[in-house]
Design a protein around this nucleic acid. Structure first.
Lengths: 138, 138
DNA sequence: ACCGTTGTAACCATTTTAGTTACTTCGGGA
DNA sequence: TCCCGAAGTAACTAAAATGGTTACAACGGT
């Protein structure tokens, strides 16, 4: 990968805006704050809906949170926007040669370390909630 | 991103093979163990050379380590293969609207949390050395 | 001089990403 | 009831990353 998709940062932006804003959060209003196309916003809100984080008033429009901001962690958002394939941050090359001692054993050993590293990151994300961010937006 | 490139797992494979193998580690020999094209191996070895981890006997061929396996961490390898852009694991969407309190403040707040999460992962990678892996390849 | 090996360049197919246009559907207000 | 703003989605695009491949020049022992 190059980088983890900006879907994640946009999703956090969207949720922060909904949490803070008193006015109706329509796709166009959010798109103006994020500075992107409204369709991008709708797509990401669709993912947040699927994850049970927000709801959208159909017809009239406007999104609202389904959880308190102190009950939404950055990990929840990260997982909602499906930023990585199959839940695995690290890719592993296909089918090393089983006839070689390294080829035969490296996958188990390295995958285990990859999971530890990934967990360390996700655990850190899980410790930060939306309200811990929004208090900084005076 | 989809996933962190398999360049990382291949690089670890390559270094493990060099560390363990008694015979000459040519690109073709390594490619056979990794099960990929020799050019892929040469490209990654080039990155490991640039990072000062290996050297290659020119003309005759064969790679060898420039450091003891207990002095090479997974983080060293991870950084050597330039798996992420600009050293930043997370991407951040461009230019949120400064006229909005969220748009104006979210970048600093979120980037700080992104760095913490990235550091947690990298710190875990830095704790594992090549020899801790290779002892598992009997 | 030959031959295996390395270092690259060039090219390719596939996938992801971010953005865009366009169209249908929904539901409230005039 | 008829609009109108909004959401949901399909289809398309351009750009970039990825993994792979062929080809070729340069190097250095035998």
């Amino acid at each position: 990968m190059k980088q983890i998709s900006s879907r994640f940062s946009i999703a956090v932006h969207i949720l922060s805006l909904i949490a803070i804003s008193s006015k109706d959060c329509t796709g166009d209003f959010i798109a103006d704050s994020v500075n992107t196309n409204p369709v991008i916003i709708r797509r990401i809100i669709g993912m947040l809906k699927k994850a049970g984080l927000v709801e959208v008033r159909s017809g009239v429009g406007g999104a609202s949170l389904l959880k308190d901001p102190d009950q939404i962690s950055l990990l929840d958002v990260y997982r909602a926007v499906e930023v990585i394939e199959d839940g695995k941050l690290f890719n592993f090359h296909d089918e090393p040669n089983p006839a070689c001692p390294v080829g035969r054993n490296i996958e188990a050993a390295l995958r285990s370390e990859m999971m530890e590293a990934q967990s360390a990151m996700e655990q850190r994300l899980s410790q930060v909630t939306l309200d811990q961010l929004t208090v900084q937006f005076q």
